[in-house]
Design a protein around this nucleic acid. Sequence first.
DNA 1: AGTCACTGCTGAAACGAATCAGCAGGAACA
DNA 2: TGTTCCTGCTGATTCGTTTCAGCAGTGACT
Lengths: 365, 365
Amino acid sequence: MWEALSSNEMVSAPPRLEAFGRRTNRRAGEESALPHTKRVTLSDVAAMAGVSVTTASYILNGRSAEMRISGDAEHRVRSAAERLSYRPNRNARSLRTETTATIGMISDHVASGPYASAMVSGASAAARAGDHVLIIGETEGDPIIEAALIEEMLDRRVDGIVYVTLATTQVAVPAQLRETRTVLLNCVDVEGTLPGVVPDEYRGGRTAAAALLAAGRSERVFLVGEEAAPEVIAERERLRGITDELASAGTALAGTISCRWSVTDAYAAMMSFLDSGGSASAVVCLNDRIAMGAYEAFAEHGLVVPGDVSAVAFDGSELATWLRPALTSVAIPYAELGSVAVEMLLDGTGGVRRLPMPLLAGASV
Amino acid sequence: MWEALSSNEMVSAPPRLEAFGRRTNRRAGEESALPHTKRVTLSDVAAMAGVSVTTASYILNGRSAEMRISGDAEHRVRSAAERLSYRPNRNARSLRTETTATIGMISDHVASGPYASAMVSGASAAARAGDHVLIIGETEGDPIIEAALIEEMLDRRVDGIVYVTLATTQVAVPAQLRETRTVLLNCVDVEGTLPGVVPDEYRGGRTAAAALLAAGRSERVFLVGEEAAPEVIAERERLRGITDELASAGTALAGTISCRWSVTDAYAAMMSFLDSGGSASAVVCLNDRIAMGAYEAFAEHGLVVPGDVSAVAFDGSELATWLRPALTSVAIPYAELGSVAVEMLLDGTGGVRRLPMPLLAGASV
DNA sequence: AGTCACTGCTGAAACGAATCAGCAGGAACA
DNA sequence: TGTTCCTGCTGATTCGTTTCAGCAGTGACT
């Protein structure tokens, strides 16, 4: 019914498998030690099925209807591909199509630190769901490494780049990023043009304050944490949310206990606050570690959480569940941030998305 | 002195830059919206320098001496490349050379969890140092995803794969991994053939025990943690190290307080131990979280660390420094594990390397 | 004058897929 | 008996590199 017209004198009978396995070794004496054994190519499949490479390509790319390929040919090609366990060479395909099914992820300290690495796995999962893979690179905050990594990714013709920062900040992104599709993750573009995704810190702030208000703690509420650098959005927005929520209940923060965002600093600051006669009915800690430091200071002063003093924090890390009593914390949805960023990249969605920060209820309020 | 012989009728005078910028747009009416603007290719560089593509390639690959290229031609090519800011297309190069300067990293839960993500950044840094990039994929422990990811990476012709597990285990790796160079990270091959790198858990165990002995705690020393699944190496080796070290001082473990490796479980187990009249001079906790749970139980029983009871643990996570008093912990060198794995991959080193687990001294002993 | 070696390059063929343009052969129609 | 249309394919080109094999031109030597 059909004629084999393939260039290398093949006729209908499919050659034996073993023969094929070897045929692909073109040059003699090239049995490399460890690396890739020569893999099956499309032309092997075509030859085995007795069709042209063109036809095989159309079939395997699902264009057989459009190209009016007979069911017979289709079946022969598919089973040949199966028997040879053919897998297309992505590099060759990419060269031709200018798409690589690859997403670059450039971060400052995300993968290294334990805090936000869920962004990586969220992104990785979403990439997989969209039939892409993730190339990652860490700049360690060095602009030179950053530039090199971006070049590297552009050289590999990634389909897009996710640019991610550990802290929720405003960033001036390197100009090269505008050469490809880019989505910002956990940061926003100073110029306001690039799409991105961040936690909704403002509403998170309101959530935290609302939790305290619901428990009747509206007086002597202190904020614990440091005023952050101007490019850090998180602190400013959270504070705005807290203030607004308290105001809506006719009250306000009693003050700020200033400290860096670490356990030991928070412990020290809270100790000196308490030592000097300070008294709080509730504290809003800017992250879970600060809350841990505060807990330690409370314990040392015989203060019981939540009886004597309530605490809410931000992050929703595992640490919050480890403390006794478990800490009520407004969570940063890291994994979701990562996956949404990748989805936006693949969809082509624009604008800045703000993801809700869910309240992780503990027993500290 | 030289003649321009390039195929497209170019003569010596380098054409204007702008002309080149456009020349590469072959088909008309193809100004795509966002994605890659057509990039400069090697033939653009060659044309501008008035040499053949071959010559340009040799020069830019540093083979000019070997190929006897004149300094003049070399200079012209290099400056053309510079002016056009030429960057080679990695896909095209990979297609020809069968090497991609890419390393695949397949993990079960490494990137997602906060614990071991430093392995990723260690690997990423080492990859960068070796002029490679890292493609990551998370299997979430699912063998189907795992197989798909490995295929994906082989399709992309990675130069090698780092196979990493969250827990230090013995694994039976998927057969496909043997198609490429593979290094195991934080796990060892059941068959014993694949190279890999793991923490030296046995010596880590000795280190932990030695720290207690040095402080004079040799009696009533309890192990806290659960007997792990048989494929988990960490627990068994640590225990062997602890036992041997104590034995060398003529003593032995007083017993095991069994619990899962989490804060709450450890707290509960330690509480019931203490409630039922148990008494320890020291505890060896199989990880930092267990120690945190133990701390909480000690505090509740009015026991002071290290006065009443000493504690050492394993992991060396940040948590150890957050506790009061700071926990003495035998650290898992995650970042180093990651970088060593990549280096082994690039070097071609074989065998299983065991990295020392440094003692992170706190104030708990 | 003829051979030779050397210098400084170049043409063309890969690599593995995607895709445009077209071509036999048969059926349908005038 | 042509012409046209449809079916079911295929050849050749392209993507951007690397690299093998070879080729003019020059000077040195016999």
